[in-house]
Structures are given as C-alpha cells and as structure tokens.
Design a protein around this nucleic acid. Structure first.
Lengths: 415, 415
DNA sequence: CTCTTTTTTTCGAGCCTCGAAAAAAGTGTG
DNA sequence: CACACTTTTTTCGAGGCTCGAAAAAAAGAG
C-alpha cells in the first residue's frame, strides 16, 4: 500500500512481465513482447538476453510465425530445464502427484486410490509425504531443482495457504500440510482450495472466455466455488472463503451437511438431490457415499419421466439460481463454468436455474448469462495447480533474479 | 496488466506516495515519510522539494511532533491554495454542493430542498448545473482552479462513474451527469453511488477500525451497501453493483420496491418495516413516503411493548442477518457500519440479526463481528465525496506533475 | 549478387534512487 | 554562554535502468 517503489523493483517487474508474456503465448518474439508490454526494444533485448544467460528462457528456431520479408523473428520459449514443480491433488479416496518441467510438460505422474475417510491422521499425512518423496526421487527429474509444490484439497484452507482447516474427505482437521512438507523436503509449498485451482485452470485454458471476471462452480457431493474478480483469484479475506454452497437459500430449510439449515448445498449437492429424489424428509441426515453410477441413474430417470427425480433436479436448479442471483446482485453477472461429474446433468438443472435467476436483481440480463460445463474436474484441477506453481516460480523466484535467490535455486533445495 | 513499468512511472508513483502520506497524517515530516514508504531520505527530500516548489505542499512550522533533542522535524502540509474541488450530493428532495480547498477545508457550501420526485428531467439537471455554477462563481474560490467535481447520488450508477442509471429519487433514468457537467464547466466529473462514498468516508474517519475490509450498510427507505475489499472500494464489475438490499432473503417472499419478491429490502427497508408493523399484507404495494417522525414513533412503540412493531423490526433483523451471513460466506466477516437515520433503531434490529447470522456459515464467529452505528449519513456522504475528489487530484493530476498536466492545472480550466 | 525489409543489438544520454557525508537547527551541560 | 551532542535535512557522486538512434544481422525480392 504505502510502500514506495525502489529502483530494483523496476527491473524485477519488467522481468516478470517478459516471462509472463512468454508463458502465455508459448512462443513469442522479442518484438511481440515489446509491443504488448509497451517497453522499448532495447529493454526487452537486454532483459531477454539476461534471462537466456540465466537459463530461464531459450531461443527456439521453431517459428511458424513470420513468413514475411525481413529478418525473421526469433522465437523465445521457456527453458524446460530451468526447474521443475510438483502438484499434489488430494480428494475423496484419491491421491495424485505430478512433476512438471518449467515449460509445463508433465515429467512424471502417479495416482492411486486410498480410503481417505477411514485413515488415521498420521497415515493420511504419511501417504502425501510418501508420494511426494517418490516423485522427487524419480530419475526423470534429471537433477532439475524442484522450486514449488502446490497441494490442492477439497475443503477449507487458511488464507496464507499453509493448512487444511476442514475437509469433507477426512474427519481430521487443521492439518498444516505446507509446514509438514516444507520441513520434510525444503521446498516451498502452498495448500490451495480445489475450486480455486479449477478457476485458475479455466483462465489459462480459455482466456478469451474466462478473462477478468468469472465463476467456477463445482457440482459434486457438495457445492464449491472459485471466483475470479478483476483478473485475480478472490479467496476471501481471512480464510479460504468463497463458500457459495453455504449461502442461505431458504432460512430454516433443508438440513445441510455442515449441520446448518437451508444452505444452497442442502438442495443442490448430490446428497440433497438424492434425498429429494428418494422422497426422503429434507431434514434426513445427508448420505455419505453416492456412487457416480447411482447419480447417473437418477439423472436418466429424471430425463425419462416426470417424477421425484426430475423434481429434485428442479429444486437444485432453483437453489443454484437464487444463489447466483444473489451473488450477481453483489458482483454483477459473469460467465459461469459448471465443473464436475454432476455437471453432466446440467441439462436437468438449467431450466429451473434460469427461471430462478430471472426473478432476482442479478438476473437483469439472465438470458445473456452463459453457462458452460466442464465434466472433467480432475484435469482442470491438475492444470490449475500446475499453473499456480509455475507462475509462482516465474514471479517470485525467476523475476527477482538476484544472485542470492538464483544461487539458492541452483542448489537443489530451498531453505 | 501486461504493461511494463517505465522509468517515469517510478517517480509518479513515489510522488503519489508522498502526497498520500501527507494527506493521511495531516502533518508529517520528511523523516516520517521516509519511514513509512521505505524510500531513502534523499529521495523524499528531492520529491518534497519538488512538490513544494510546484505549490502542492508547504512547510508548516506548526509542529507539536518532536520535542526531542536534535534538529526539529519540519512539518509538511498540503497547500490549501493548490486547488479546490467540489462535491455535489443529490438525494431525495435534497441538493447540496460544497467547495473545498486542497487541504480539505470547506470554502463554501449551499444546500436546499427541492421536490426531486415531481421534477421534470430538465429541471432536475438544471438545478444541479445551477448549484455548481453558483459555487464556481463564489468569490471565496479566490481564483483557485477547480480540478474535480464528484456527484453522489442514491441509486445505480454505471461503472465508469459517468451516469446515473436508476434512482429512487426520480422517475427519470439514464442521466449522464458527468458528461453534462463536463460539457458545461470543463472540469472532470464522476458520478458515484452514495453508499460507496459513505464507505470511503468511514475509511478516512477511522482507519483503525475500517481498514482493508469492511461493509457500510445504509438503513433507510431502501437498503444500500458500500463494500471495501483489500483496501479498495468494490463496485461490481459492470455497473455499480453492491445491491445487497436485493439479495434474495426468501424466494417468492414479500414484495419489494424493485418489483421482485423476497429481497432483503422487502423485509428491512423502512417501507417494509412499516408494512409489517401495520399488519399489512407482505405483498401490499410499498408506501412511498414515510416521515422520519413516523419511523421514530414506530421504533418507540416497538421498544415500549411487544407487538407488531417489535415483530417488524425482528423480521428486518432476520433478513439482514441471513443476508450478511450469506455475504460473509462469500467474503469472510468484516466490521459492519450501520449508517443512516434508521440505524438509530439498530437496538431493535440487532438481536434478531445476530441470532440469524449465527445460523449461517458466515457466522462462525458471530459474537466477534462488530456493528457500529452512524446515524448522520449526510456528513459521511459529503466527507466521502470530498476525499474521493481530493485523492483523484492527488493521484491523477499532482502525482504526474508533468509540465503539460501542470500547465493545464494552472489555467483555471481543464479540457 | 544487390537491394529492401524487418528484427535484434549496441551505445550514449537522461533519469531516478541510494548511501555517505556535510550542513542545519535545535537541546543539554558545565 | 560556549561547546558538545543529537537528529533532521540537503548535497553529491555512483550505480542502474530505460530510451532513442544508429548499427548490425538475417532473411526475401528482383
């Protein structure tokens, strides 16, 4: 806020700018970078020659860019050998780790099932540590230093992204994953909410559509949200925030998994749809495990004939619609992506959702609000984590480029 | 976003930093500025001597600061003669304009009643133009150039802050006040939402309490909100946003002034409290005019005995509580200021509000959420507009300090 | 093989911030 | 009342950074 800008900040920021331009475009020339950053050619030339000599960027003669007259543009690309990062995804009964090079290509990956809900605390932590260790020891890492680990988890994380506070995947709470992994491996770690990482991934995957303001909603057992405002991930001010699923739809309404009543999730989460489709009382204790096949059967039944199944999806749509309407009243409409396996049933949800949203203040232009479905949540999740880790390296480590920092990076470990 | 930082930006930002340090503290020394900005003493010295020679700052020997040994600190203060700004407040049946010097002292002001709801469009605009003209012609302006006009208005404004789109104070819509006034007076103008300006004022009035994240809620005929997140006014992404009063409290519930059903305002606005206290149907058409005395009588009745009046305030509290709970689920709790004449009845609202918020996901620490009441909304409104106008001059005009810009400022008008 | 076009690098100029040292403007003390 | 001490402010040269202009490089066109 009040802190002045010093002379060295200038170089740091402009280095970051150059790196980010290359990361966004995959391959760019110095001329293009000069154009988008509105810095002079001389400056870009100086910075990129520094970055190349530091082994962060590399010239790649692979250009299909300029078939014009004149000296052809030299493509700049990220140097894959500059570093590697790791992503870890921990979700219900599932653990995966991926090692990626600095250019974002997958170097090694591993995933397997495990019974997260029944595991003792120490075993859960142990499995995470073990999978990280195996990936760190993977020969394909080829001696490249690991500069960042990002762990994505369903549930609530703390604001500095260092701990899981609560998660539906385990009864255990307050697990300081970042501290644990940093102590073990001396690599900087953050713990991120899964929906936030999906939003990050959407932004990289389709920057045209998901530019400065958009919403990713995870339709799953529970309801999650990732929110990007003004081009930045909005993570609440203290904890992870963005608990869209626990906005109140009907005061004193249906029983939610969180113990409260009337949350959106208590109408739109898988367990809520299940409960309504089975004509159970809306105060019935939420069921824990509903197989994907069961949900698909429910959706098929709803498509097939009018009945409690169809009504259950209608109620889900209504809850989501009023919730989005309230959200839009606060932040103005934005594109929405419906993510997750249950997004495949969005056709059943959408009519009631649009009908509800049109009756709210946020629904001014309800017909112009666009919904997109992305059934493959795991792919998004991994992609988002990868970009989160890589941009951290870009902005926090390589942009600084001060000798101490680089020295540290050159050793294979960080304090 | 992607734009690089050039050499002159650096000076501009550091100049802005110095000016803002002086504006915040009223009087500061160079040493203090160096401390808070973490810039070197030489830099601060150079910048402040520039600012003094440009007539933006002035040395004021008025120090009660350092009674220590050593050379006494020289106080720096804003030079009142550097410029003047104007604020215009247009609310229900009321119009006011204030001229302030660069240090924020009131130079001239004027206010009067007028029947905004019955006035033809041209008359409403005409009154605003006339009051601005009278203040511009005020001899107390003393030749100082007017560098900014901020007009605050109840209702919805567009995002670039140039037009009033809709307002409860007049049947007319889409009045491009900024363009109209700029054409007339050649001074840059913005049109701001009243609740947003109140939030701005709170931040300046009590920076300890209202720092980076807080909420100002206007309890009045309608319900408005100003939201500050991460130290910045959050104004939605397209239009003015922040329509807290029109979040949905009960789907298909009570009739709101906006024509929809179940909005928070339809339970907590003055007309809603009135409607409930009179045991009218909750779908009864909202009453337009309720005098302040009538509302006070209602509140007194509610304090005196249990009955429909007390129940009406309870319902208002419940609606506000669930609404805040949903809001807090999204953005995490923050201090709340209840602003406006009706905030004087907050004692009647608070119990039900707290009870409701405790039943929401955002109410984790409901007891620690603090509410503050600020009955004098007009004072806040004026103060907020003044700071908005002055900081614009600070950051957009004086921070740049380039010859062209300064030349422009020296002439008494801007293009 | 030479000319034209476009990209990239080189080089000196002009700012800006910084640290160190000097100057300034007081207070305490014998 | 002079002198030492303390703290603030200014001065000055050094070091960095970006910029514009010019030069060099690397093609295609004729």
């Amino acid at each position: 806020m009040t802190v002045g800008i010093r002379h060295d900040d200038l170089r740091r920021r402009n280095r970051a700018m150059v790196i980010s331009a290359v990361r966004r475009n995959g391959q760019t020339s110095r001329t293009e970078i000069a154009a988008v950053t509105s810095l002079s050619h001389s400056t870009i030339s100086a910075i990129s020659s520094d970055l190349i000599s530091e082994g962060i960027l590399a010239e790649a003669r692979h250009e299909q860019l300029a078939l014009k007259r004149g000296r052809p543009q030299v493509a700049l690309a990220l140097e894959p050998k500059a570093a590697v990062v790791m992503t870890v995804v921990l979700s219900l009964n599932f653990l995966a780790a991926t090692l990626l090079d600095y250019a974002g290509e997958i170097v090694a990956e591993e995933q397997h099932r495990l019974d997260t809900r029944a595991m003792p605390r120490e075993d859960l932590i142990g499995e995470c540590v073990a999978i990280v260790r195996r990936k760190l020891d993977d020969p394909r890492r080829d001696g490249r230093r690991v500069l960042r680990i990002v762990l994505a988890i369903q549930g609530i994380t703390d604001a500095p992204a260092r701990a899981m506070l609560w998660s539906p995947i385990t009864p255990h709470t307050d697990i300081a994953f970042a501290d644990i992994l940093e102590r073990e491996f001396s690599v900087p770690v953050t713990v991120e909410n899964d929906c936030n990482m999906m939003a990050v991934a959407l932004r990289w995957r389709d920057p045209e559509r998901y530019r400065n303001d958009f919403i990713a909603i995870l339709l799953s057992h529970g309801i999650g949200m990732g929110l990007v405002l003004k081009g930045e991930l909005f993570t609440g001010t203290h904890s992870s925030g963005g608990e869209f699923g626990h906005m109140i739809h009907r005061p004193d309404g249906a029983l939610c998994r969180c113990g409260r009543r009337g949350c959106i999730e208590a109408y739109a989460g898988n367990y809520a749809i299940w409960r309504n489709a089975r004509r159970m009382d809306e105060n019935a204790e939420p069921v824990d495990d509903i197989g994907e096949a069961d949900m698909r059967a429910l959706a098929d039944a709803a498509r097939d004939h009018d009945g409690p199944e169809r009504e259950a999806y209608r109620k889900a749509g209504e809850a989501l619609g009023f919730g989005l309407g309230s959200l839009f009243a606060l932040i103005d409409p934005a594109p929405v992506a419906m993510v997750g396996a249950s997004a495949a049933a969005f056709d059943l949800i959408e009519p009631a959702l649009r009908e509800a949203i049109a009756r709210t203040a946020g629904g001014h232009h309800s017909t112009s609000i666009s919904f997109d479905t992305e059934p493959d949540e795991l792919a998004l999740l991994r992609g988002g984590c990868a970009m989160r880790a890589l941009t951290f390296v870009d902005n926090e480590i390589f942009a600084a480029g001060n000798p101490a920092q680089m020295e540290l990076a050159a050793g294979h470990e960080m304090a």
